[in-house]
Amino acid sequence: MSSLRQIAAILKKDIISELRTKEMLTSMFLFVMLTMVIFNYAFGADRNNLTPFGGGMLWITFLFTAILGLNRSFVHEKDEGCLEGLLLAPVDRPVIYLGKMTGNLIFLSVIEIVTLPIFTVFFISHNYFPQIGWFIIALILSNLGISATGTLLATISINTKTRDMMLPILFLPIIIPLLIGAVVSTGQIMAGTKNFESVYSSLKFLGVYDIIFLLISYGLYDFVLGE
């Protein structure tokens, strides 16, 4: 119970700070919008032709947006020395991980909720609203994997001199399997597939990936924050 309160305190602190500065959300939102504009000019405005590539376009955009957010998520902790304050508190290290990870998950989800309708209008011709439940499950599982892995790697990279470069270098190779699952599941739903077997197996894969990387990150966080 006390751990839940501590996780909630870390999450609340991150949300209040972000709502005051809007640094992370603004940069993430602008990046998504710019990417969509570039896609629109690069691929033309024929939505029928673009729908099969919707999953790939969507997750390339969201993945790099997530990296932007993850890079910012430990800025105060590092620049203001507040990480030391967190580490001095009688809080188990995995509690810090869960608090920060939940924050990253929420910020990424907020950006997706705001930008997804715009993306759909621009690039998707099929009405996938009847399958929106499956789409949301795919989105949540993908976001969870990105946040679980990204928070651990952002913590590692924050202690390096080239932290902005280090995170993508560490993050992208590890996230590729999840990216494939996310692209396949959401792409097929957006394209209006009748074959849900392939979507189910992609969702199952995303779930397994999430569990594995949540457990690995949870277990390693004490070591990562060691010194």
Binding site: A9, I16, E80, C82, E84, G85, A89
Partner: peptide
């Protein structure tokens, strides 16, 4: 040397945050 305070929280929110962590 460093106050270990969050600049975008007010004084009360900073103390509340640390107080919750320390229960």
């Amino acid at each position: 040397h460093s106050p270990l305070l969050y600049p975008d929280l007010n004084a009360y929110e900073n103390l509340k945050f640390y107080g919750t962590l320390y229960q």
